[in-house]
Each structure stands twice: as C-alpha cells, then as structure tokens.
Design a protein around this nucleic acid. Structure first.
Length: 419
DNA sequence: TCTGGGGTCCTAGGACCC
DNA sequence: TCTGGGGTCCTAGGACCC
C-alpha cells in the first residue's frame, strides 16, 4: 500500500507564540532574536515585507525598520510549552506521529478513508481554536513532497494553508514553483552547485542525472531527495526516535571573558544542563569534551581550544563530570585571550543500567546527589540548587533585553485579564 | 557595543588485521 | 629489482536540518 504523509508546520512559530498573548500584534511585523539577542531566528510575513531576514544580526537592522518592528528575545520555556500543546492535539489525528522539530510534525494518513483536504482544514481549525497557533498542512506520498506541498501551501494564499498533492498527474506544475533551495535536504552549498548547472527548481532537480547527483551531492543522501521528489518514498516515518547519541550545551557570553574563573563558572553550569538531559533520557556518557572559543568577528588574536577525555567508566554524575570538565579546561585554557563562547559535549552515550562495572569502580547506579538536585530544581525552578563553582555573580550570562513573560509555566507571570 | 544553539547522517581516509 | 588486496573500525569534517 502506498504511504501518505501529512506535514504540519506552525507558521512563524515563535512569533505566533508571542502573538497568542499579545493579540494586538496580529498583522504587525514581529521578530524573535537568538540567545544574547544576537540575530533574528524567527519572523512574521509582515517583518519579511519590511526586508528583515532570518539570520540578520540585530544590531544591523536599520533604525527606520526597528521603529515598526516588534522585537522579542527568545523565550524557549514558552515556546516549548506551546509546542507540547500543539503536538498533543496533532496526535489525535493519526495513530502515527513523528514530532520532527519544535514546530513541525509528520502524520501518517495511509489507509485512512477521508477527504484529506477537509481533514487537513479540520486540523488547522482545531489547533487554532485550542492554542491560537496558525498551522499549514502539506500532504503527499513522500515526506520530501509533503514538505514541498507545505511550502507551497504557505506561499500561495489561495491554498488556505492546505495542499494535498496525492494522486495528481500534473505534479511537475507544482515542482516548478519551488526553487531548489526550498527543498528539504538541499542547503546552501548544494544550491550553489545546482544553480551553476542550471538547476533552479524542484522540477529541474527531479530530471537531473542520478550519476551527477550521487557524486556531487553527498552520495545516497542527495539521491534520496531526488527519488522522493519523483514520488517514491525512501524516508520512513520515525515515530519513536532513539535516545540522543550526543548532548551539547554551549552558549555565547553576554560579554567576553578572559579569566579562567569566569570560564569555570560557565563550564560548570553547562555540565549541569547537559547532565540533566543525560539523566532524563536515562543514559551514561563515556566521553566528555570541553571547548572554548574567541570572538571570530573581532580582529584580534584568535584561539579555539578543545579536548576530549574518554572517561574510565560511563557516568551521569554531575559532580564527576564537572570534575573532569574543569580539569580539561585547565589543560586548554590560555591566558591573554578574550573568550566569547564555551561549551561541553557528552558523547558515547550508553543506556543506564547496561554497564558492567569492575571490582574497583563504585556502584554508580544511584547518584543520590543528582537525584536530589534534579527533583528540587524540577519542583522549585532551575538553579535553586547549583554547584558553587558555577559562581554567584555571573557576568558572562546572556543578554536578553526583550523577554516576554513565561505566561504558561510560571504562576507569577500568568496572563492577567481585566473584565 | 552588538553576529544562536543543538542535533543527525554521510563520506573519506587512516590504522589495523589477516 | 621486486613491495597484495580486501575488510572493518574509527575519526574528522562537511553538509544538512530546525
């Protein structure tokens, strides 16, 4: 039986989340900034019309544009919570769902005897009614085509946010409308290569020789994209994703840090974040890396230090990982540089409970300190308990000038309505 | 003054083994 | 003088995604 996939994508997701609680911003240009208020990561159509682009540094946005633009620092607590609500509604519409990212999900509609366009419109209405978030739906026989259908549904108002490509004979007519850089799996580099070959649209790519694709576009990866464009599915729905194979925590600093104490504070708190995620998926890490970077945009001496330790036995203990991380930091730190960013990576993750310890390693199945920290911090908020080496006065933390309240996750910031 | 963060998959190439 | 070939495993780096 042929598969049928629907791709549901929230429109300008972060901006839409902000609009839910600021309804007066409907039809207004809204942009959301990355951590540190660095650059634009999400924006509404009205903001695009002003000439703002995803990735634009905030400080480069012209004054006259800023005057009209409503700017927010990113509020991931809010977006994560809203995402959860949207996904739980979507999962009512199919037994098989793949949550692909914070604002996108694939549904498997195969074998369902329904008017698909009508069904998709019901999805849009239900999500809008229950959460206030607008979504678009693309439907097709492959995931790549479903993404493409979604792209068209968003771009052309007469679609009303829904496009079903299943069973269409004139599918090339639709492929013609989509430039190669908008195809799922075709990034900046491949767009350049393809354009040089005269390949501009999804239709051009569909009919381009396999041989060239295979040897110039990452082998089977590129080929898969082209085959999916032709209507043959080769990427399955992944409804139960495997646990992560690596976990990273890193941040740019609000202001640059030269002394090792500042870096130690940052690394300590990143290890905490990463190890909480590690324990949450019930894994142990067998390798640990630490890296520190200077500011690549500055015309001054640059240094990127990084080092990986293979741990003597896999662990998820915050205390142990912090101890190793600070030792690595001592090894890679060089004074006389101003650092802009630091991070840690936990690697070689294995399932907790599967590890054989030898005679000389203590039983690490129950790190009591971690359990207590996790439960206190879950209940009373992050950073209720933290390690002393994370520091009290943290000069290096992020800049966040335009943060909205945590409307849905903090009683103190809940929306107040006057009637 | 000011330029994000967290992942995955694939390939090429080296080390090593028989 | 002459100096195999094939397989596996690992890592680094590139490209992509949101």
């Amino acid at each position: 039986m042929n598969k049928i996939y629907a791709l549901i994508d929230c429109n300008s997701f972060y901006a839409s989340c902000e609009r839910v609680f600021r309804p007066e911003l409907k039809n207004e240009p809204v942009a959301i900034l990355s951590n540190n208020d660095g650059c634009v990561v999400a924006l509404t159509k009205e903001a695009k019309d002003l000439g703002v682009r995803r990735g634009d540094p905030y400080f480069k946005i012209e004054k006259r544009v800023l005057k009209k633009l409503h700017v927010f620092s990113s509020n991931y607590t809010l977006y994560g919570d809203m995402s959860h609500r949207v996904m739980s509604i979507l999962s009512e519409f199919s037994p098989e769902i793949e949550i692909y990212s914070i604002d996108e999900a694939f549904l498997d509609l195969s074998g369902m005897d329904i008017d698909r366009t009508g069904y998709a419109k019901t999805i849009c209405t239900k999500v809008m009614k229950d959460t206030g978030i607008p979504v678009s739906v693309g439907i097709a026989e492959t995931k790549t085509l479903a993404k493409l259908a979604n792209n068209i549904a968003k771009k052309y108002p007469k679609c009303n946010g829904v496009l079903d490509l299943t069973g269409r004979k004139n599918i090339d007519k639709y492929l013609e409308k989509v430039p190669v850089q908008d195809i799922w799996g075709i990034g900046r580099k491949n767009t350049l290569k393809l354009n040089r070959k005269g390949v501009k649209t999804a239709k051009d790519l569909k009919y381009f020789p396999d041989g060239w694709i295979r040897s110039n576009m990452g082998g089977v990866t590129g080929l898969r994209t082209v085959i999916e464009l032709s209507g043959t599915a080769c990427i399955d729905l992944d409804s139960a994703p495997e646990p992560k194979k690596s976990i990273v925590s890193s941040r740019s600093f609000g202001e640059r840090v030269g002394d090792i104490d500042g870096l130690k504070q940052a690394v300590t708190s990143y290890i905490y974040t990463a190890s909480v995620n590690l324990r949450r998926q019930n894994s142990l890490a067998s390798a640990l890396s630490v890296f520190i970077l200077t500011d690549r945009f500055k015309n001054e001496p640059q240094y990127n230090g990084s080092l990986t330790y293979s741990l003597p036995y896999p662990t998820s203990s915050t205390l142990e990982l912090t101890d190793y991380a600070l030792r690595i930091l001592d090894r890679i730190y060089k004074k006389d540089f101003l650092y802009k960013k630091a991070g840690v990576m936990l690697d070689g993750l294995v399932p907790g409970g599967s590890v054989q310890y030898n005679l000389f390693t203590p039983d690490r199945s129950k790190p009591a300190v971690d359990r207590v920290m996790d439960s206190v911090n879950t209940r009373y908020g992050d950073s209720t308990i933290f390690l002393g080496s994370a520091g009290i006065e943290r000069k290096w933390t992020m800049r966040r000038q335009f943060t909205s309240p945590h409307y849905t996750t903090d009683w103190n910031e809940i929306l107040k309505i006057k009637i």
